[in-house]
């Protein structure tokens, strides 16, 4: 239920943005969820619906999944993250702390653990819209 902690962070962040931008009501929140963190979108949606209140009461949350793309810093090979290649415990570790991917995955071409996560790491707010 790591998704609840992330949902709380989203609600907190959106509330701060609404305050800063003088929004009376938040209508739409766009969220991007990276594949690497393996967030259960249904649980995240449920948590958001349970946690939203005050200015966010009527907000609609749109969640878009983003493929996780990795790039080797040594040989520049690019590849996509696949949960299926991991055992349950390693996948769970990456779910909690996506950076632990460096403990479990290596570049499929040269074997280096020195790669960057080009996209699809975790949870991001893309936009917050509302009425002033």
């Amino acid at each position: 239920m790591h998704e609840w902690a992330l949902a709380e962070a989203i609600i907190s962040s959106v509330s701060q943005i609404a305050e800063k931008e003088g929004l009376k009501e938040v209508r739409e929140v766009k969220i991007k969820v990276g594949e690497l963190q393996q967030v259960e979108v249904e649980i995240l949606e449920f948590a958001l619906s349970e946690l939203k209140m005050d200015k966010l009461k009527n907000a609609k949350f749109f969640i878009e999944a983003v493929r996780a793309e990795l790039k080797c810093r040594v040989c520049e090979h690019k590849w996509s993250f696949s949960r299926n290649r991991l055992d349950k415990e390693s996948a769970e570790a990456i779910h909690f702390v996506p950076e632990t991917v460096h403990a479990y995955i290596k570049c499929p071409r040269c074997g280096s653990p020195d790669f960057e996560i080009l996209q699809g790491r975790g949870v991001w707010l893309e936009s917050v819209k509302g009425v002033k």
Partner: peptide, 12 residues
């Protein structure tokens, strides 16, 4: 794009 995590840390 905004990282929502920062906003919750001091509450935690």
């Amino acid at each position: 794009m905004i990282d929502p995590r920062k906003s919750i840390i001091n509450k935690r």
